[in-house]
Design a protein around this nucleic acid. Structure first.
Lengths: 217, 217
DNA sequence: GGGATATGACTCGCGGGTAAGTTACCACCG
DNA sequence: CGGTGGTAACTTACCCGCGAGTCATATCCC
């Protein structure tokens, strides 16, 4: 009867999963929950349950809810920025570049479409310096690419008002966002069919035939 | 010294503000806070403080946080839907109608630009039936108008795929959203200057001169 | 007095965060 | 080869503050 002071903990103990693997698994689960519900509406216990582990393990590895979110931002931002920079380094310009960028985004986001949402979450508490810095870093990189494309397009059209460029860049990023959202509501679409649909929509909106380069894959 | 059982409550009692006035004042404050911080990140005490009254009065008038939010949705949705339906009843079509709609939105949102956000808040807990119904009602009305305009435009361009219409409607609404957001970051802009900017941007994106009717006010 | 307007001071659950302990594995010693 | 200590991987059970929601009361005016 001396054992009464020692609680039984049948599920405790290591399961042999290396820290790096477990961290990735947790970040994946957290990204999904944060991305679909928003930061404030997500509890760490939710993430733990979805990841199939317990809450303290998350705190052991990430320190805090903010630390976990920052890790999600880091992963998602790096993926997005690198893909878009890779496309920007290609030789596509103007609308072809826009379409190629959308294609890249769709392909990248197919397995986990919520990624995008992390960077536009209004429920992140202000004054969280680490989070704000991480978001700024990646949105700056992505916005710089979009801005460059928009500025080139406007220059060709004879317009160069900096505020106009800024507003149109914002609108363009939002279009990309909305198309991803629309895709979320139509899960039967593939990256290829989404890209084809965007090609048709460009055609309609621009009211003129597109360069033939766009129709070839 | 028998008064020790009776707490002093110097600020209690009526201030002579009729319920209807007070309710409107509270809804205004709540809309601002909900719209800028999101539902989950907003506390009822925040709203009370901003409205200059106490928390129990909110519960007395609106019953719950969800009831308060529903009242905000009701007010904002009615304003937006009625304004857009008023414009739709006019004789503008195609791009002119689009620009007139944006103009109406900008004018309507100038005093309280957060209104728009209430309808795209991912932090609203699922399973809140009253909120979901209220949002669905107004977004359906607004989406129906946008869908009608987009369908007409696509028909003229020889396209009529229903899913294409759906996706383009989503993109168009998102463009309106992003322009409002951009405006939030550039508070020196007026509704008129925003409308003029949109006209220029339409011109650039469409790559062709606009109908002269658009340039006249 | 009584109804409408109003509030200070509570309760209570939820969620961020922690303390302390448990189990598995491995390196090393004999 | 068996013990043995160290460490990494994990959990249960808890603390505690914050915020939703309530109660009892206070003030005003007719």
């Amino acid at each position: 009867m001396a054992r009464t002071t020692v609680a039984r903990r049948p599920n405790a103990g290591t399961k042999g999963v290396p820290r790096a693997d477990r961290e990735e698994q947790i970040v994946l689960a957290a990204t999904a929950v944060f991305g679909s519900q928003g930061f404030a509406a997500t509890s760490v216990a939710d993430v733990a349950e979805r990841a199939g582990i317990s809450k303290p393990l998350i705190y052991n590895y990430f320190g805090s809810k903010e630390g976990l979110f920052t890790a999600c931002l880091h992963r998602a931002g790096a993926m997005l920025a690198e893909e878009m920079e890779r496309i920007a380094r290609g030789d596509a310009v103007g609308l072809e570049r826009a379409l190629r960028t959308l294609e890249g985004i769709f392909t990248l986001l197919e397995p986990q479409p919520w990624i995008w949402r992390l960077f536009f979450d209004p429920t992140i508490p202000r004054g969280e310096e680490r989070i704000a810095a991480e978001i700024a870093h990646y949105t700056d990189r992505i916005t710089a690419l979009a801005d460059e494309g928009v500025r080139e397009m406007m220059r060709l059209a004879g317009a160069d008002d900096p505020l106009d460029v800024s507003a149109l860049t914002s609108a363009w990023l939002s279009v990309a966002d909305s198309l991803v959202s629309w895709w979320l509501d139509h899960p039967e679409e593939t990256p290829a069919s989404m890209t084809a649909r965007c090609l048709r929509l460009f055609h309609v909106v621009l009211g003129a035939p597109l360069p033939s380069a766009l129709t070839a894959d």
